[in-house]
């Protein structure tokens, strides 16, 4: 897939670039309004990551431009401002999602993939991984074509890991993904362990291979090897 990162902070841009490229995607970037304007006009992208505060202009104007020239690129706004008004404005102007800095790269990727899935015209709501088949719309999981029942949180967690397959996901990233920012509890890391343990058990009981790997107590990885 092809993404455009419009972000003036080089460090952040590089990290995102690296993370996305490792998944086999193609990343293009722009560090200013002008650059972003040109690239958006010339090329088509599956998803555009748009920072709102650029050194020479407002990111929202780029979004406006994109809609004006009738492009159907998905747009994910990444902003340091946690303002409800700006969020509503961005979404009403046609952005698909709004992510507040700082964020985890795994969360970013999960959001991008959700946008891409939603926007794909051939109704590609299915995520497949070997014997696993996850329907993101009906929220159903099938292992070898047999339904497996997961709770909502377990389902979200599994989808999160499958989307970010082969990546190590830190516990704190998983906590934020499941509970949001509000639950800043000391216990929350333990829950990730519990939930993953439950998912693992349900999957292996259904005859699925155990793809979860623990990484030194810092996080987990969902991968084949």
């Amino acid at each position: 897939m092809k993404f455009l990162i419009v972000e003036d902070e080089e460090g952040l841009r590089k990290s995102i670039d690296q993370y996305l490229t490792a998944e086999g995607n193609i990343c293009d970037w722009a560090s200013s309004y002008e650059q972003g304007y040109q690239k958006l006009s010339l090329y088509d992208y599956d998803c555009v990551l748009l920072d709102l505060t650029l050194p020479d202009g407002e990111g929202l104007q780029l979004l406006k431009h994109l809609k004006k020239i009738n492009k159907s690129d998905g747009v994910l706004i990444i902003s340091a401002r946690n303002s409800l008004d700006q969020k509503i404005e961005g979404l009403s102007m046609g952005a698909d999602d709004y992510l507040i800095k700082p964020f985890h790269l795994s969360e970013l990727y999960a959001r991008i993939m959700a946008i891409v899935r939603r926007r794909s015209f051939n109704g590609n709501s299915l995520v497949q991984f070997n014997e696993l088949e996850i329907d993101t719309i009906s929220k159903e999981l099938k292992v070898n074509n047999k339904l497996v029942y997961l709770t909502r949180k377990e389902f979200d967690l599994l989808l999160y890991f499958v989307t970010n397959k082969n990546k190590v996901i830190s516990k704190s990233a998983a906590v934020v993904h499941i509970w949001g920012d509000e639950a800043d509890m000391a216990d929350s890391f333990d829950f990730i362990y519990t939930h993953i343990k439950n998912v693992r058990k349900k999957l292996t009981d259904a005859g699925c291979k155990d793809y979860f790997q623990s990484v030194y107590g810092i996080g987990y990885k969902f991968s084949e090897s």
């Binding site: 460090g11 952040l12 340091a80 700082p102 964020f103 985890h104 990484v215």
Partner: peptide, 21 residues
Amino acid sequence: MTPLAVINSKLDTMLQSNTLN
């Protein structure tokens, strides 16, 4: 917030390294 975002993303990147002990 932006430097924090950089730190966070760099940590995420470091986490992907296969040689972590």
